[in-house]
Design a protein around this nucleic acid. Structure first.
Lengths: 297, 297
DNA sequence: GGCACCCTTGAAAGATATTTTCGGCTCCGA
DNA sequence: TCGGAGCCGAAAATATCTTTCAAGGGTGCC
């Protein structure tokens, strides 16, 4: 005797519509409940039967009756559906954020915006990355006798990140952030070695110089830059392009360029690890073992 | 061109991330429950405590304990969250693509998978980040006389990244990766100073020691870790949790933990920049000016 | 190897929440 | 004004969730 409406038993999202459709056949009290539910799913999902009954100035029995009318076995199930609906609304609202960060943004917005921005940067970078160039760079790295990586400032950290990882799979790699030492080392390179420059602007002299030295000695050179037409590329055999996000006052370019550069560097690393799997896999686990005792129990 | 990959839906599962983060501190029975919940949110949302207990071969008590550990007041609330999660997954269309990278994946797939994974990590991190703790950490940093940051290995680079950025807005910050020097410096700290430890595992002795020293001297201490219940947190006034992605042979944990840590660090930076806007804005442009001549024409 | 301790676990008691029952009430029409 | 039909909520009945408690099992320390 329960089913008043032959419709689909559990309504997923079209709850508001169902409320409107069924409203005429509802009694006054039930309408109040239905209204509350349709108006604030999230809020109602947090309430018990008793709570919702009080909120709407009705009784538990009425709430349950309303839930039944809406097609659920009882209030419990309506509540679950409500929670789902709330979550959907919540997630659907997300893309509405403007990505500029203002001085007075609450901290939660800052988190959301930064995460969103960096996700966007990753997607852009992946889409724009030239896999041919990447493949060529990987090939060169995998076969290299020695790898030198140049980067200063924020890019210097990316250079170190790459170096750390390459070392873990048994390659001989060095990161240089001191321009003088970088050049000094670069002139030692020769054919078969790889020099890799990381610079967002593509015009950082301190990084271009060592790459040039390496280039002139016959080493294979790779540039990771946001400007594929900049000065650094003239000494680069392979150019890997990172994405350029517009920067704002509170969000310096260093932030997104770093994200972008790291993705490229990760791709290089995984590419090389694949190519040298035989030696890379044991080296990786060895380095893991070596560190284990550094972690307290 | 933005879309490119399906991209992770706004907040896919802070829950799966949470399960990973807390799993190590769970007992066997609780792990079984957590696993079931993370594996099939929709299915579990339909079950009562008793039902879920039977399904996982445990008792009601264990189910409730697990719900508590995951941060809910009780099973009822976990169930509601589950329903919400299920609805989101439903609408977001499960991006159930396998993100594991195989040895023979073409390079283009590697790029796509890595980008997707890192996007996922960002979303998880943002969803799980406790904005209260973050706000407290920002407040402490903004008012600090001096900031010391500890991190070794991959986390050391994150520490440097944060330090570089804080320096740019006029704070006095140092990154330490040498454990001895770190402790030596830590004992100089006092009330009003901030010490910040970055460690994925939360059990890196080389990082815990200096934080402890700072903590005992009365400095405000912050920990950025993937294990919110690990050793490092006992000396931390504020704990910021990074997400833990499952690692595979070709994708070391260092990769996603770094992404996650960097997001947290960025949030700290922007937060501090907001709070100290009056001084931060001019400092930022000054540091930009200072570097301009280093870029060739 | 034995012992003491602590941690884990599930059964069952206890507390809440949901559903059902049941009788009073209102509203309508004669 | 009276009778009846259906709406409504208080409270009982039931289901579900939470807490307690003691047994079982593992672990570290003699």
């Amino acid at each position: 005797m329960k089913e008043t409406f032959g419709g689909p038993p559990p309504a997923p999202g079209a709850l508001a519509a169902k409320v409107r459709a069924l409203a005429p056949s509802m009694t006054r009290s039930m309408q109040r409940v239905a209204e509350a539910v349709a108006g604030d799913p999230a809020g109602c999902a947090a309430l018990t039967v008793t709570g919702l009954a009080e909120l709407t100035g009705t009784s538990e029995a009425t709430v349950v009756r309303t839930a039944r009318l809406l097609g659920y076995p009882g209030y419990r199930d309506l509540r679950l559906a409500l929670a789902g609906l709330a979550a959907q609304q919540q997630s659907g609202r997300a893309p509405a954020i403007t990505t500029d960060i203002a001085v007075d943004d609450p901290i939660a917005d800052v988190v959301a915006k930064l995460a969103y921005d960096e996700q966007q940067t990753l997607a852009d970078t992946a889409a724009a990355l030239d896999t041919t160039q990447l493949g060529a760079a990987v090939t060169a790295l995998a076969a290299a006798r020695r790898v030198d990586v140049y980067g200063v400032g924020a890019s210097g950290l990316v250079a170190q990140d790459l170096t750390q990882k390459l070392l873990r799979i048994g390659l001989i790699a060095h990161a240089h952030s001191d321009p003088h030492l970088a050049v000094t080392n670069a002139v030692q390179l020769r054919s078969g070695d790889v020099a890799l420059a990381i610079t967002h602007s593509g015009s950082t002299g301190d990084v271009i110089e060592p790459l040039r030295a390496a280039f002139e000695r016959g080493a294979t050179t790779v540039a990771i830059t946001g400007r594929p037409d900049s000065a650094v590329t003239q000494y680069a055999d392979h150019v890997l392009t990172t994405s350029i996000a517009r920067e704002t006052e509170l969000r310096p370019a260093a932030m997104s360029s770093r994200t972008s550069q790291l993705l490229v560097v990760d791709c290089l690393f995984v590419g090389v690890a694949q190519r040298t799997y035989e030696t890379a896999a044991p080296a990786l686990s060895a380095s893991y073992e070596a560190l284990a005792h550094r972690h307290r129990r």
